[in-house]
């Protein structure tokens, strides 16, 4: 097996790159979870990470906002470079908090804080030191609208976030992630804990969000990847096997392994 990633993409001069993994690797202690990943994230596009369980998709996703820094023994290798400022997010001198201010995240299970709906969304603004009440109210409203939740909660902004339904909680988490105007939002299997109707609304929302932000999403659901993403990356045991335009990856995969996975022969 070669380490070369199969590229299934036509060179596009207009496509702007928002971030890029360069020879990126990752270690949990001595265990190498990701090997030599080279992958672009195109600006204001949705990129989906697919692959069987344990292939490292979530590990890769969580490297972008340096979530691995929270636990001892984790180590990055190579670079993840963010544009337009050409910052290596993994560099020692780069503060992970600064990284997380630019790259927000939505988790697998909705995890609203034990606070009111309003305070949940205002959280990322408050930790940035914003205290002006009218500005907070404006931005909370704007984010809730952006997450298609405003009409459902505008009369009960002081209710606990945990009192919402699962799908509403996940949209609350999206509103929370949107509030501080991130450049990239990471979604870690955002619909795996939701019913089909809630899933459809989140998918629709993601498609709308890409007008404003770059999105990287991990999903177990290949139909979901096909429906909402512009680019797809297929990973297998810590390696990036194929990367390309979603339609091409799904209709005409160039790599045999990708084809086997997508057609359900394996995985």
């Amino acid at each position: 097996m070669s380490n070369e990633t199969t590229l299934n993409i036509e060179p596009d001069a207009n496509a702007a790159i928002k971030a890029e993994c360069r020879n990126f690797g990752f270690y949990y202690g001595d265990f190498q979870a990701l090997k030599d990943i080279n992958m672009p994230l195109y600006d204001k596009k949705v990129t989906a990470l697919i692959g069987p369980s344990g292939c490292g998709k979530s590990t890769l996703l969580r490297s972008f906002n340096r979530m691995h820094d929270l636990y001892p023994g984790n180590r990055y290798q190579g670079e993840i470079v963010m544009q337009p400022d050409n910052t290596n997010l993994l560099a020692r001198e780069v503060d992970p908090i600064e990284v997380r201010m630019r790259i927000s995240m939505v988790f697998q299970k909705p995890n609203p804080f034990p606070k009111s709906i309003f305070e949940n969304v205002a959280y990322s603004l408050r930790v940035r030191g914003l205290t002006n009440k009218s500005e907070l109210a404006d931005r909370v409203q704007h984010s809730l609208k952006g997450a298609a939740l405003w009409d459902e909660v505008k009369h009960r902004l002081n209710d606990l976030g945990a009192n919402l339904s699962g799908g509403q909680q996940q949209r609350l988490c999206i509103a929370r992630a949107l509030a501080a105007d991130p450049e990239i939002i990471l979604f870690d299997e955002p619909t795996s804990a939701l019913d089909p109707i809630a899933t459809a609304s989140i998918e629709e929302l993601i498609t709308e969000l890409k007008e404003k932000v770059t999105i990287l999403i991990v999903t177990h659901n290949m139909q979901q990847a096909a429906r909402i993403s512009d680019f797809t990356a297929y990973m297998y045991i810590g390696e990036l096997i194929e990367f390309g335009v979603t339609d091409q990856v799904f209709i005409k995969p160039k790599n045999k392994q990708t084809e086997d996975y997508i057609t359900g022969r394996f995985g």
Binding site: N65, M67, L70, I97, E98, R100, M101, S104, M105, F107, K109, N111, P112, F113, P114, Y123, S124, R126, V127, R128, C173, R176, A177, A180
Partner: peptide
């Protein structure tokens, strides 16, 4: 998961401890 949510929003350790 709650701590991770807080860190992912750009909170510091102290903010996470006191506010979440």
């Amino acid at each position: 998961a709650l701590r991770e949510g807080s860190y992912a929003m750009g909170a510091t350790r102290l903010q996470t401890a006191l506010r979440v």
